[in-house]
């Protein structure tokens, strides 16, 4: 059984993209992962197909794939920029995405080319409202 909108953990200090990626700014770096709604909907995540360090992505382009036992879904980059670090722990411990999606389950760190793109993302309230609409 999946969570109801009011049960979701959506921290207030980060931003959310439409496909439920989250983004946290740290200087000129943006840390990206999947939010509680996405990990809950996907169920047990078994593999995360990561980009390579040095690759660049435009905002809203596919930068990773997440596999559960019976589904695959694409992750879209919330900002444009270059991948400067990937969470290598996910290779052997994909369950971190389910267990700690805002902490140890982060995906990538992106050196953003335009931090203003963060403004187009949703805050936690909007994100929760969008889930209710779904």
């Amino acid at each position: 059984m999946t969570k109801e909108a009011h049960e979701l953990n959506l921290p207030a200090d980060i931003k959310y993209a439409k496909a439920h990626e989250w983004a946290r700014v740290d200087g000129e770096i943006v840390i990206v992962g999947l939010d509680d709604y996405a990990q809950d909907q996907l169920g047990d995540i078994v593999f995360v197909e990561m980009p390579e360090v040095g690759e660049t992505f435009d905002k809203d382009s596919v930068f990773a794939n997440v596999e559960s036992v019976k589904a695959v879904s694409e992750c879209y980059s919330p900002v444009s920029g270059e991948i400067v670090e990937i969470n290598e722990r996910l290779e052997d411990e994909p369950e971190l995405v389910n267990n700690d999606c805002y902490g140890d389950g982060w995906f990538v760190k992106i050196k953003a080319t335009n931090l203003a793109e963060m403004d187009s993302l949703m805050d936690h309230e909007k994100c929760r409202a969008s889930v209710k609409g779904e």
Partner: peptide, 8 residues
């Protein structure tokens, strides 16, 4: 347990 089979 298909989840663990696919994870490891």
């Amino acid at each position: 347990d298909e989840t663990t089979a696919a994870r490891k």
